[in-house]
């Protein structure tokens, strides 16, 4: 059974149809890149998978959980336990330090303080940001901020990591490093990585590439 299964999903914002009868699936541990131009519907696809948005019609199933059939509170719990997000603009909490940003999902999942400290320490080392643990996001470079975002996204060992243009705000060199890091981090954990992007630099790393155009999936490359 596919880990992620979208069937005939439609989504519109006002009169603008963003997703039009989309079928999509992804297997456990797979790295799928969703490529498309701005406004093609790729972010909406990720938001539906992450339970941030609801489809107008069709079904969104993650494992045996039908996201279109559960309440908002259940979706919050689902995100907290099974999903990790990496955003283009990092979206770190400016009032928390680097370490505290990574602690956040762990604390939300009710982990004990020593376990949180251990896991945060390990992640800081793994992602090479140990020295920045007590600094605030505004004091870091873009690349460093995105590393923190990756650490936060995988800290609670989610099944799926959703990355929406994670390199869109970085220079080429840094972007490449971040991509490799994200890919490796997810693979080490066996997490499914779904990445939305409009560039093709990442294609070589992906297991599968899906192209989306005007709200429809046009092609899938293995």
């Amino acid at each position: 059974m596919d880990q992620v299964q979208l069937t005939r999903v439609c989504k519109a914002y006002g009169s603008q149809r963003v997703l039009d009868n989309v079928d999509f699936c992804a297997n456990r541990g797979e790295f799928v890149v969703v490529i498309g131009r701005s406004g093609s519907g790729k972010s909406t696809l990720l938001n539906l998978i992450g339970g941030l948005d609801e489809p107008d019609s069709g079904s969104v199933a993650i494992g045996d959980t039908r996201l279109d059939r559960i309440s908002e509170a259940e979706r919050a719990l689902f995100r907290r336990t099974r999903i990790g997000f990496v955003f283009q603009f990092f979206n770190l909490i400016p009032t928390l330090t680097v370490a505290e940003n990574i602690e956040l999902p762990l604390a939300l999942n009710g982990l004990a303080r020593p376990a949180i400290a251990d896991r945060v320490g390990a992640l800081l080392d793994e992602l090479g940001i140990g020295e920045s643990a007590r600094r605030f996001p505004e004091e870091l470079s873009g690349g460093e901020q995105q590393r923190v975002a990756i650490a936060r996204a995988v800290a609670h060992e989610p099944d799926i990591v959703l990355a929406d243009e994670p390199t869109g705000n970085l220079d080429l060199e840094t972007a490449e490093r971040v991509l490799h890091l994200l890919n490796e981090t997810c693979r080490r954990r066996g997490a499914t990585l779904l990445m939305a992007t409009h560039g093709r630099e990442v294609v070589g790393l992906a297991d599968r590439v899906v192209t989306i155009r005007h709200g429809r999936i046009e092609a899938a490359t293995w």
Partner: peptide, 9 residues
């Protein structure tokens, strides 16, 4: 962002 991470409403 907090909601995306898993904060409930």
């Amino acid at each position: 962002v907090l909601r995306a991470i898993g904060f409930s409403a």
